[in-house]
Simulated scan of single mutants.
Amino acid sequence: MELRQRRFQQKYMEGLTTAEADLTVYVHPSKSNKIAEAVRKQLSSLLFTYDELFDGVLLAHKISFRSKHAKILPGLIPYFGVRVRAKLLIFSPKPNMLLEGKVVKLSKESIHVIVLGFSSAAIMLEDIREEFKYKIKHGAECFASSSHKRHRIKVGSMIRFAVKSVDEEIVHISGSLIPPQTGCIRWLSNHKHSADAVSQTNRSLKRYRDRDSEMLDNGDRSQNFSRSLKLRKGTE
């Protein structure tokens, strides 16, 4: 199979894109009387697995045939290439992207999530920000925010998390809840301004730390300069 594709701007969460692709699909001669079925079957065999051809996981496809002519390939079994145009839905998660998924398992050490119904993700304790504390409420495990009482993550919650790394072979994601814009989607959607304020506060604190660090550096340089002047005066 050969591919030339043009990706479009993502419409949903990060990592999920649509693309138009010009494909050449090679079909066995025995399928010459059912070409459309053979092409769809070959593309369907690639669904929900990572493929370097698409640089991601193919989730859905819709094809139209560009020509009634096919190119016959030389060889012992002369396959023929069928040119089609396909609309593709591709899942291609990368580090630092924000993804959404459903919590299916939760323990004191980790949160396990299913993304788009097929890809698994794990968020370990060291990647969960400190405001979330593990608790058992009414017999159910959860991570509850110490800053916002109603911000809880439990089994069945839809959460937004950041991607740390991706194992492309098995489409397994290592995630993080450290960024302030991550957490339970329902709470985030109702308290968007709170999340933005936290993010802005963190940026402000960073600027203050950088400024204080610069002032300390300048102060040290000034003290060193003063000492050198005193030493010089002493020698004179």
Rank of each mutant, 00 (worst) to 15 (best):
Asp212Met: 09
Ser176Tyr: 13
Cys184Phe: 08
Trp187Lys: 06
Ile77Met: 07
Phe161Lys: 10
Val25Arg: 00
Gln5Arg: 07
Met215Trp: 09
Met13Arg: 14
Lys206Asp: 03
Ser145Met: 10
Gly101Asp: 09
Ile35Lys: 03
Tyr50Ile: 03
Trp187Asn: 06
Arg129Ser: 12
Lys135Ala: 04
Val82Lys: 05
Leu43Gln: 04
Lys135Pro: 01
Thr24Val: 12
Lys34Cys: 05
Ser157Tyr: 10
Ala197Thr: 15
Val163Lys: 10
Ala38Ser: 01
Gln181Thr: 15
Met97Asn: 13
Ile185Val: 15
Ser174Glu: 12
Asp196Val: 09
Ser222Trp: 11
Ile136Ala: 06
Lys68Val: 04
Asp167Cys: 12
Met1Cys: 02
Gln10Cys: 03
Lys71Asn: 10
Gln181Cys: 08
Leu188Ala: 09
Thr18Pro: 10
Ile153Tyr: 10
Lys230Cys: 09
Ser119Ile: 05
Ile170Leu: 09
Arg211Asn: 00
His138Lys: 11
Ser204Thr: 01
Arg83Gly: 05
Met215Gly: 00
Ser119Gly: 07
Arg232Val: 15
Thr18Leu: 14
Asp196Thr: 09
Pro29Leu: 13
Leu116Gln: 00
Ser213Tyr: 12
Ile114Lys: 11
Phe80Glu: 02
Ser64Leu: 10
Gly81Ser: 05
Leu98Tyr: 05
Glu169Ile: 13
Arg209Gln: 09
Phe54Ala: 02
Cys184Gln: 09
Cys184His: 10
Ala197Asp: 02
Ser107Val: 07
Asp51Thr: 06
Ser44Gln: 03
Arg40Ser: 04
Glu168Pro: 10
Gly234Tyr: 15
Glu141Phe: 12
Arg186Asp: 10
Asp22Ala: 03
Val27Cys: 11
Gln200Cys: 10
Ile178Gly: 02
Phe225Ile: 07
Gly219Lys: 13
Arg7Ile: 11
Ser157Trp: 08
Ile111Cys: 03
Leu23Pro: 15
Ser213Thr: 11
Leu47Asn: 02
Leu205Ile: 07
Val27Lys: 03
Asn190Met: 14
Ser174Pro: 00
Leu88Arg: 02
Val171Asn: 09
Val166Ile: 12
Ala162His: 14
Pro29Asp: 01
Ile170Ser: 11
Lys164Phe: 12
Lys149Ile: 07
Leu59Thr: 00
Leu216Met: 08
Arg83Ala: 09
Thr182Asn: 07
Arg186Asn: 08
Val113Ala: 11
Ala121Ser: 10
Lys62His: 08
Ala162Cys: 13
Ser44Val: 00
Thr17Gly: 01
Lys154Ala: 14
Arg150Thr: 05
Gly15Arg: 04
Val82Tyr: 01
Ser67Phe: 04
Phe54Ser: 00
Leu47Ala: 01
Gly15Ile: 04
Phe225His: 12
Ser32Trp: 06
Ala19Ile: 06
His172Cys: 13
Phe132Glu: 01
Tyr26Met: 05
Arg4Gly: 02
Val115Gly: 05
Pro29Gln: 00
Ile128His: 03
Gly56Lys: 01
Leu53Arg: 02
His148Lys: 12
Gly219Thr: 09
Val57Tyr: 00
Ser119Ala: 15
Gln5Ser: 08
Asn202Asp: 08
Asp22Trp: 05
Ile35Val: 14
Ser107Gly: 15
Ser30Asn: 05
Val198Glu: 15
Lys68Cys: 04
Arg4Tyr: 05
